[in-house]
Amino acid sequence: MRLRPNLLIGGTLLGFVVAVAATALVWTPYDPVRTNLRRRLVPPSNDYWLGTDEFGRDVASRLMEGAVTSLTVAASTVLVALALGMAMGLAGGFLRGWTDRILGAVNDTLLAFPGILLALGLLAVLGPSRWGIVLALGLAYAPSVARVVRGSVLSIREREFVEASRALGNSEGYTLLRHVLPHTAAPVIVLATSLFGWIILAESALSFLGLGVPPPAATWGNMLASARPFMDQAPLLSIAPGVMIATCLLGVNLLGDALRDLLDPRDCT
């Protein structure tokens, strides 16, 4: 196999973010939630590598803590959206008929709301909590996954190897999982990587509205949101989480591309 630059760069970037999060689980320079009002908005120094925020909390520690929260929230949300969306898309596309019509109607209704608005409504009911966000954003983004999966299933189910599988006596379930599901991988991976980005941004937007992961827990999103009023006094406060978000997204996207290429049998020989 050739060495792929996508795999290398994407792996390095995401590896860095994951390493930061893993370190935060066992050690951070300071307690990320301890306030110190005498040392507010301190510029970077040997004591505080990235300075402190408006409550005197260490930015570096919060960034590390935020990596854990943001990664777990984004990854679990993507998983929820994929699980729901793929189940709906596979069922609708493969079974057709009434199943497809009903699922399609539900899907269209959900798609008619902007994702963030839907999540807002759900969160208003569920109350802001980490798993509430995962569920709400997962539900909000599942319809787009369902659409993509249904579309590719519709084209794949007409291919003759699916009919060949039926002629062999394979059950519908086996045919679906063995011969149809793998072919949805390419579009789903591309979608999942962009979903990852949207979700990190959506989480920060929800935090901004006070519906995100509740304070004092740190996420990149709520750090970015709370840094906004201090943009001219302490620009690093917003730049630091911004850089982390960008690094993470770039890593995920490049890795997603590499993964899609790796899964294509045309490149394996």
Binding site: R159, E160, F161, E163, A164, S165, A167, L168, G169, N170, H179, P182, H183, P265, R266
Partner: peptide
Amino acid sequence: RLACQIVFQDPYSSLDPRMRVRDIVAE
């Protein structure tokens, strides 16, 4: 189904492109 089989016209679409030839024949 076990007693009957079919060979399709277009060998480009009748074989699952993600399976190796041995797995296709073993299926």
